[in-house]
Design a protein around this nucleic acid. Sequence first.
DNA 1: TTATAAACAGACCGGTTGTCCTGTTTTGTC
DNA 2: GACAAAACAGGACAACCGGTCTGTTTATAA
Lengths: 232, 232
Amino acid sequence: MSAEITARPKARPGKRTNDPEGLRKRVLDVAEASFQARGYHASSLGDVMAAAGVTGGALHHHFPTKKALALAVIEERVAAAIEETWIAPVQAAGSAREGVRSVFDAVAAELEQQGFVRGCPLNNLAHELSLADPDFRTALAGIFSAWRQAIADKIRADQQAGREHDTDPQRFAALAVAAYSGAMSMAKTAQESGVLRDCLNALEQEASSASSSNGRAGAKRRRRVLRQHRAL
Amino acid sequence: MSAEITARPKARPGKRTNDPEGLRKRVLDVAEASFQARGYHASSLGDVMAAAGVTGGALHHHFPTKKALALAVIEERVAAAIEETWIAPVQAAGSAREGVRSVFDAVAAELEQQGFVRGCPLNNLAHELSLADPDFRTALAGIFSAWRQAIADKIRADQQAGREHDTDPQRFAALAVAAYSGAMSMAKTAQESGVLRDCLNALEQEASSASSSNGRAGAKRRRRVLRQHRAL
DNA sequence: TTATAAACAGACCGGTTGTCCTGTTTTGTC
DNA sequence: GACAAAACAGGACAACCGGTCTGTTTATAA
């Protein structure tokens, strides 16, 4: 219904300023948020136009169809989100397992602070659009693939450095991504972030049957119910 | 677009036969399939009516609103699907871990045979509807909860029987459900079932660092690309 | 049979959606 | 400044969707 997210530098009567890149960015900002909060089909271009302070002509000029807009959101924003919150941190971590743990931890902490679970943008769109259109499916599958690839590569680097043994990189990456995706799915549905910590702890407990360090401190906290929060 | 799933015993000119339960079942059949294939918002009641061979008046009589129809699908069909494919097999299995493995195996085999991945009905609807309506969210969260509960209970039973040690039931259940949900999500997006086997193998490999039996035979097969198949 | 309610038929309507189209303004280039 | 292309404005439209409404038929019970 109501919206007014991005700043709209308008309301100047006589003059106009062409700002193609800025306008395009504003539209993508709003579309990304709307797709995340309400999904693709439930997001109307009218709402996007109103929230971004953009007319129909301008929107059509940059994104001829709704599908084109969604494709741009997927390729530019969703892919970037996975890159920022997962790929880069894992690559920068001391090991693949430590990277996975740190991301789980960071996301869980962020959810607890925000008090509202919007879910994983990639999974949200993947579920709604994978079967709807081949172009959507291809774009989304590529992001999933790159995500797993980065984790698998990190495992391989760990193995070459002697930090990891007898772990199939591809399988480990698949499990890490799946566990995160599934945990976020449950966290979103239950509006409760404890499942993320449960999954992370289970993942580490399973691995630590004969592992090395096990210095996880305050792991007693769980099942923290989130307070309600407004959407969008 | 086109549809003609359920048999429609009509076309008899003069007579009519009231069959409330049968008609209701037919509508739920079609709605379940449509929600699964296209999602909630992309499914129009007109298509459902046409596919089920039902008029608007009849549909409205049994399901006053689209939301009521979806709620019935969730509570009666989706919950039953989880019960049949997950809860019952796990309860009937020799142990929780064996139950989880057998379900993963069975689903992967089914996907490879069908050649098409429709995804998990619970996750499909959960992603689209959890944030859309509190009633949807509550219903879906309950199914997730029961799902995890069944696995956790099985772990507890294993522990009392001495088959399982040092495994947090709740955490294990969360990981199992999350891994499955996430794997199905990726399988649906990639239209490729190998991720399911990757996740299962990783799950067992993680646990078998000091485990007991490890009698998995032909685990070499992976990355089997599915042939295309028509939807709905 | 008659009454009574449930089950069903089918048209109808207001609102919304995505897209298109014509026109105007700005911007860059020679 | 002239000109062409890009950037933007804003209305129009046809299709569709979900819900409602009235009326008819079937089943049930007295």
